[in-house]
Design a protein around this nucleic acid. Structure first.
Lengths: 195, 195
DNA sequence: TTATAATGTCAGTACTGACAGACAATGCTG
DNA sequence: CAGCATTGTCTGTCAGTACTGACATTATAA
């Protein structure tokens, strides 16, 4: 990775995220992180004091919910399949942008308080948005939802599962691309939820 | 955990699985594993030689595919929703029985060659089984499948996502139980795949 | 140019963790 | 009981690994 155009602090943060996501918190040394950032170990400690604080600072880069709120407010067109596809695409975009932090949070060997909470806060919100959306669609007669929350949850789990599966370089199931999964899964759910 | 009724070897294996699943390979010491097993560290090394070999031995306990093959051969009744529910239940049973090993394999900080392969081999087989099943159902006029492999994949991903989500004590999404998820998700897919 | 801030170097501390050897204690088994 | 296997204890080695301090070097900006 090339971090050369960034300031020292950012280079250290990115190197840490990259390496810890790959090998875990205890699997990486501060020396390695510093080298990957093209800096000395000393500089790392001057900036962050401790290894743990370095990781905590890295997590402050996690963001997510705002975009989703925007999506639900502005981009949906009232067509079940198209909207689900929009949601799916936005979801994967966000997840991929933060994929390394999410990887770390899944591995989660470090018991930094609030990590999981912080990364889970946003999916929870998405679940709410989606369930509400389904209720709205039902009112318009464009969907039938006996249990909107569970149905929204099922949709999210399929997307989440595909994302986790894709985390490991996506080569777990040969011949299946994320793109075509998004198409197919939204088509399936659109049909399942259609009146 | 109480391993007192087992032999030393098994106690060590179970303790290792338990602790490594929770805190990761590098997050646990051989000393801790031995103590958790109620044995001395020396005994651990007498049995396994190295920490890595201990983990490898633990992974030999992973099994999976045979049950699934049996399920597809004998337990399916030709009703889409019922069969999907059977599959879902068996899937979660197996995954839960091996949940700690799967957790380790997901965290995967250790690059023990063949770990991921061994745990991924079986889901791959399940995907095949399921796709074939859908083709059969289509022939009987009980399902429509434009792309059975992708559709099977979507179903599996929803189950896998729910499983991963449930891995962390299932408290990520309050108020949603795995049991009702299985009901709802299979119902949804049955409708999506119905003619 | 000069003062100041940011970085590097290097040696070192304190601690941890995987693993080995020697020997004693305990069990089981014939 | 005698013998053998299993385990415990204690001590130790060796290689990391987070983190520090002293001092030198470079870059930046007034």
């Amino acid at each position: 990775m090339d971090y050369s155009h960034l300031g020292s602090r950012d280079r250290l943060l990115l190197a840490a995220i990259h390496l810890i996501a790959e090998r875990g918190y205890h699997g990486v040394t501060t020396q390695e992180i510093a080298s990957a950032a093209g800096l000395s170990e000393k500089t790392l400690f001057r900036h962050f004091g401790t290894k743990q604080n370095l990781l905590e600072s890295a997590f402050d880069r996690y963001h997510y919910a705002e975009e989703m709120r925007l999506l639900f407010k502005e981009k949906l067109v009232g067509d079940l399949e198209k909207d689900l596809l929009s949601i799916s695409k936005t979801y994967h975009e966000i997840m991929n942008r933060n994929r390394k932090l999410i990887q770390i949070s899944i591995k989660d060997e470090v018991q930094l308080p609030g990590f999981k909470e912080r990364t889970m806060h946003h999916p929870l919100q998405l679940l709410d948005f989606l369930a509400n959306y389904l209720v709205e669609m039902e009112k318009k007669g464009k969907a039938v939802c006996a249990d909107p929350k569970l149905q929204a949850f099922t949709f999210m789990m399929s997307q989440f599962g595909a994302f986790v599966n894709d985390l490991e370089a996506g080569r777990n199931y040969p011949g299946i691309e994320l793109e075509s999964f998004m198409q197919e899964s939204t088509k399936l759910f659109a049909k399942a939820l259609a009146p």
